Amino acid sequence: MKCALPRRALRALSLATAVLACCTAASAAAETTIGIANFGPHPALARTIAGFKDEMTKAGYVDGKTVHYVYSDANFTPGLIPQTLAQIVSQKPALILTVTTPVAQASVRNVSDRSIPLVFSQVTNPVAAGLVPDWQHGSDRIVGSASVTDYDAVLSFAKKVFPQAKSFGVLYNAGEVNDVAAIDSLKTAAAKAGLKMLATSVDSTIDVPQRTGTMKGADFFYAIGSNLVQSSLPAVASVTDRMKMPILSAEHELIRKGNIIAVAYAPSYESQGAHAAQLALQLLKGVKPSSLAIYRPQPSDYLALINRQKLAQLGMAVPASFEKCQCFVN
């Protein structure tokens, strides 16, 4: 048996359905899709992405309400990056955040839709990486927030933490362009700071303990943001501990996890993501990447972390000027 509705009720129902469909369409249209292409799952990179999202939220891009994030990573496999980007592009994003140098480089090559603006983060030197023409301008495709280190600021901080220091040791991979560039900049900063730098090249992790041992007499060891050096820090510490030499790291991760690093000083990952978001907001408004400058970390972006237990084990005290810094991991 069929139940017939009055003609007036049918008209009202049709109107309500139309209004609901219109509102739903408007809601879908208001939601912006933003892609996030990451090299792989890692706590530091996750904090960069969190900083990006937090800054976007402040600007009204609320996850699940006004913005939909499409995330994909290559599990640290360079050959999978094109596939990662293709998955994101298929969702028709309004913008793509690329995290790390390899992903940023691949995005310029592989994202053929030039209407999709690209913004990078966690790229040490975008000029040397061929992403942008100079530090004052993005390219016609991409702009972003660099993670380049201000070595003048680092060594100024080091002299405050280690006030008696006259020299420091550093390892680097001579076969890595970024490492060589870092050493050149660090050498200039060391001369300005009045510190002697003992730099030693290392080709593989196997050589790390022996090469570290050649730095006997240095007042501290500075671990640059090198893949080889950072992954070898437990081996470095096995030697520097015997020499009562503290490690100052350009990365924060290891100092949070254990009792290897004495001090870490570097731009926070969250700030790097936040500054990438500020550039992304300009791109979403239609500003061209080439009209924006690359963001370089400022002193306010740097985060200091100090392991008091490690310093005590090495027979060192925390300078009085740091006692109230709220920068201790234990």
Rank of each mutant, 00 (worst) to 15 (best):
A18M: 13
A29W: 09
A9N: 01
L5E: 14
I34P: 08
L5S: 14
A30D: 13
L20D: 08
E31N: 10
T33P: 10
A26C: 09
T32Y: 09
S27Y: 03
R11Q: 07
A12M: 10
L5M: 15
L10A: 08
R11K: 07
A9T: 04
C3T: 14
E31R: 15
R11V: 12
T33G: 01
E31V: 13
A28W: 00
A18K: 06
A21K: 04
A25E: 08
C22T: 13
P6K: 04
A18Q: 00
I34L: 10
C3D: 14
A28E: 05
R8C: 00
T24Y: 00
A30G: 01
C23V: 07
I34S: 02
L5H: 04
C3M: 12
C22V: 12
A26R: 14
A12P: 00
R7M: 13
A28S: 04
E31T: 14
I34T: 11
A30I: 07
A21C: 15
V19T: 08
S14H: 05
T32D: 02
A16I: 11
S14T: 13
P6E: 04
T17G: 15
C23L: 14
A21P: 02
A9F: 06
A12E: 01
T24M: 03
L13N: 01
L10S: 09
E31H: 03
R8I: 04
A30Y: 01
A16G: 10
A16D: 10
L5Q: 10
T24R: 08
A21Q: 02
A12Q: 08
A18L: 14
A12K: 08
S14W: 12
T24K: 02
